[in-house]
Write a protein that binds this DNA or RNA. Sequence first.
DNA 1: CTATTTGCAAAGTATTTGCCACCAT
DNA 2: ATGGTGGCAAATACTTTGCAAATAG
Lengths: 135, 135
Amino acid sequence: MAATRQRATRQGGAVRDALHNAGGFRSAQDVYAVLRTNGDAVGLSTVYRHLQSLVDDGVVDVIHTPEGEATYRYCGDPGAGHHHHLVCRRCGHTVEIEGRAVERWASEIAREHGFAEVDHTVELFGLCPVCARAA
Amino acid sequence: MAATRQRATRQGGAVRDALHNAGGFRSAQDVYAVLRTNGDAVGLSTVYRHLQSLVDDGVVDVIHTPEGEATYRYCGDPGAGHHHHLVCRRCGHTVEIEGRAVERWASEIAREHGFAEVDHTVELFGLCPVCARAA
DNA sequence: CTATTTGCAAAGTATTTGCCACCAT
DNA sequence: ATGGTGGCAAATACTTTGCAAATAG
């Protein structure tokens, strides 16, 4: 049941690459569309399966947009640990950010209210320099 | 075109009340089930419509669970302004929290990276004292 | 009385699963 | 050969929408 290492397949690579050079958060449907456009035909369910397994491997991060759609981003190093993102709501461009301060604040608040096993969600959405200027 | 004030209907009140005395985040489906159980029959679409209008009025907050379901919580005062939540992932019990520190941190990071119109999502999930003990 | 609201059912969207063919080892 | 993989299509779950009937003011 451990590290369900996957086989190296064309589709698996295609999904990983597409996400990788997208450089930001993309929905499964987006990835599917891109691959399809590039001629790299991959089934939709396959895209979902690969994204999921990448997430399990800790190589990809997931964020649920305010609209409720799941978006994925290639974050490389599985051991990179916990971090947050500053995402451009226009082009999806993303910057990884450290949140020591926030982490501390979160546990502080949690302890204060007697909550246990506290987890947190912290994401910033805005317009990146490029998109802001274009606006 | 302004404040699309709604008529006072049995259903509208039922939805608002159910959410109010739930005291925490509840999904539309939850509210629907509760009302139905209480004999306060209300259509599912009606529940959705009222929840949405309450959100528009700023009386209710929305959070999308990691599972992608939208949950709503009665937060009263429409002018209460921006705040965050510490939610029990077991029973839904919620505590409103101020985040001056986080707000500052967020704008700091945003400016640092040249992002504009930055908005943020900060929610804490854990086990409330009661549920933690029961665990 | 008249405009708003309700509720059913049908439609829509995102995601998951069943199942069989297929390919890397 | 053989077991993990890929893909299609059907199944799920949540949410939205169309439209006729009920209802508040």
